[in-house]
């Protein structure tokens, strides 16, 4: 316990730096992450940031547990990062779920779509709709498995009722979706 308390204070300041660097989705997360994990994350994210600009990579990195991430981070950085992402994405997601079961069943990441200042009011209908469109435009532009689109998928899943997503998916299949895709 004493360790974690000790390492808490530097990790907080790091987290503050992160917020400035990574605009969107990290600000809410570091609060509940264990301090050690935050530290490794911070390193990882900064190295990743230096090598390439994909916010989805952080998401993947954060999902997987800290020890493998910190080991992999230095290897990954010089390597062709995009390739790594593509074959890592599904594996990492599965891994993280398993690891949650094995080691610490109580450590689930509390993270969600961040506050978006295009939608500062109580009415968030268009926030959900916009995120849904952003995801599908991203997929249309970057290809189906593009890891940088994953965050938009997370956002719209967090914000939109499942029923709406089902309806829109159906409409897209039928070609009757009303939004600009």
């Amino acid at each position: 316990m004493a360790e974690s308390v000790a390492s808490q204070s530097p990790s907080l300041s790091e987290q503050y730096h992160l917020e400035k660097e990574v605009k969107q989705d990290t600000s809410a997360k570091p609060v509940e992450v264990a301090p050690e994990v935050t530290a490794t994350q911070a390193e990882e994210v900064t190295t990743d940031k230096a090598s390439e600009e994909s916010p989805a990579e952080e998401a993947v990195g954060e999902k997987s547990e800290s020890p493998p991430a910190s080991e992999e981070a230095p290897k990954e950085a010089p390597a062709a990062a995009v390739e790594d992402n593509v074959d890592e994405t599904p594996a990492a997601v599965e891994e993280s779920n398993e690891e949650v079961v094995e080691e610490t069943p109580d450590e689930i990441k509390l993270e969600t779509a961040p506050a978006d200042f295009r939608f500062p009011t109580t009415n968030q209908t268009r926030h959900c709709f916009t995120r849904y469109i952003e995801y599908h435009r991203c997929v249309a532009a970057k290809g189906d498995e593009a890891p940088e689109c994953d965050k938009f998928a997370k956002f719209y899943r967090s914000l939109c009722p499942g029923e709406w997503v089902d309806k829109w998916n159906e409409q897209r299949e039928n070609g009757t979706f009303p939004g600009p895709l």
Partner: peptide, 15 residues
């Protein structure tokens, strides 16, 4: 009451 000061940690949908 309307202010969104910080990013929330979780989203719950009540339907």
């Amino acid at each position: 009451m309307d202010e969104v000061v910080v990013d929330p940690a979780i989203t719950i949908k009540a339907i």
